[in-house]
Design a protein around this nucleic acid. Sequence first.
DNA 1: TGCAGGTGTTGATTTGGGTCAAGGCCGGTG
DNA 2: CACCGGCCTTGACCCAAATCAACACCTGCA
Lengths: 239, 239
Amino acid sequence: MTTTLAELKQAAIVNGLRSCQLFAGMSPSELGAIAEFTVIKSVPKGSYLFHEGDPSHGFYLVQTGAINVHRVNAVGKEQVIHVFRAGESFAEGTLATDKGYPADARGVEESQVMLVQKNGMLALLRRQPELALRMLGSMSAHLRILVAQLEDLMLKDVETRLANWLLKRCPNKESEKPFKIELPMTKRVLASELGTVSETFSRTLAKFREQELIEVKGRTVTVLCPAKLAGVLRRNLGE
Amino acid sequence: MTTTLAELKQAAIVNGLRSCQLFAGMSPSELGAIAEFTVIKSVPKGSYLFHEGDPSHGFYLVQTGAINVHRVNAVGKEQVIHVFRAGESFAEGTLATDKGYPADARGVEESQVMLVQKNGMLALLRRQPELALRMLGSMSAHLRILVAQLEDLMLKDVETRLANWLLKRCPNKESEKPFKIELPMTKRVLASELGTVSETFSRTLAKFREQELIEVKGRTVTVLCPAKLAGVLRRNLGE
DNA sequence: TGCAGGTGTTGATTTGGGTCAAGGCCGGTG
DNA sequence: CACCGGCCTTGACCCAAATCAACACCTGCA
């Protein structure tokens, strides 16, 4: 049995595709078809995958690391839209239009992504309506993320947003047992994802610490009593 | 030549479908197929088409009037996501998931919409991949709207947002000729769409009036010199 | 004719959080 | 080891805009 380098690479890509929500559960032959026009890219920390307005070459799947999708305005301030991590896909929206990418994408850390190239994918979609439905589902999920993001940013103050963010990572929100959360990035980046700056973020953490809701040690945040934090969240929302 | 009532109704629906961006340029037979599972609904002013979490029956096309899609939080404050007008479609995202509608939808005024029912449309999409691509394109446009909305709300102050809003309705942004804009809704609603409250909105209008950028009379706003307003906008963005 | 409810305007007050500035802390490098 | 450059934290200050409050409209209705 002989195996060429190309075949090995192909197999690696198929594996990568499978581990992605968008393609989970698809047959090996279908995955093979997609792998035909998929390439792997390394993204050094801080480097850009694309900028707003760049013509689209396809959409991306994250294998390892994290990709920050954001917009910048004239002043240079940036608004994080979402940080995509392993298994997630983004920029599917550019498949069906000839507009460019609507935002910027940059590696938060050293990352590996797969680029599913536009032309190949379009041709495949025309032959595989089921796949098109999957894409619709995936885009719908992104719409939901954005809607939630909008709501988060508009209807709540930083304290509420942080409480919400922390609770989202607790497995059981009504538990009274402490739960450790390891921050996946610097606090500065996290602050920006929450739509604020590092100073305010820091202050809000301090406030929670004083109320003995959390403990902070470096990049580890321990939610002392999720149920109590959930109470704070409810109170903030409900009044 | 005999024409049944049902055929007339069918023809009306086909016409409605054709006048919608999403389906523009499709063949009569395709439109006929879609019309099979499309129903017309009247939406009295202020009445709800659906609420967040309701199971999806399909997606909507606006024929006349305007539909306000928004979220409400526990306090009862609502954040407008977008106001859809004649020719636009919304809630396509619910086709490909079994999650319910992600937001609320209410008639801003007496409106007429078409409901394209979920099951029929799904079956058709499986047979018509081109149509699925169209849907992808449409959802991508919605993603762009949301991204723009996020940026608007986060990166700019009310003055800039209002200047931007007004300029968007001027046919020629560099003209020096006055242009009349008829507000399509109460100022309270418009304020909310701009992510602020009626008081602040009122004050900002007053500020522009003092600078002789606009004139206001009831629901008619006259932009005295679009080019000058564009200057204000640029200055706000660029510093 | 007068009242009730919704809409707009304006003023006074408060506040969340962004900005600036000044350390403290830590890890890497010469 | 000492020094430097990132991060993080805390304090002081300030501003845009939300909130609270009073009042002027208008329109429909009894």
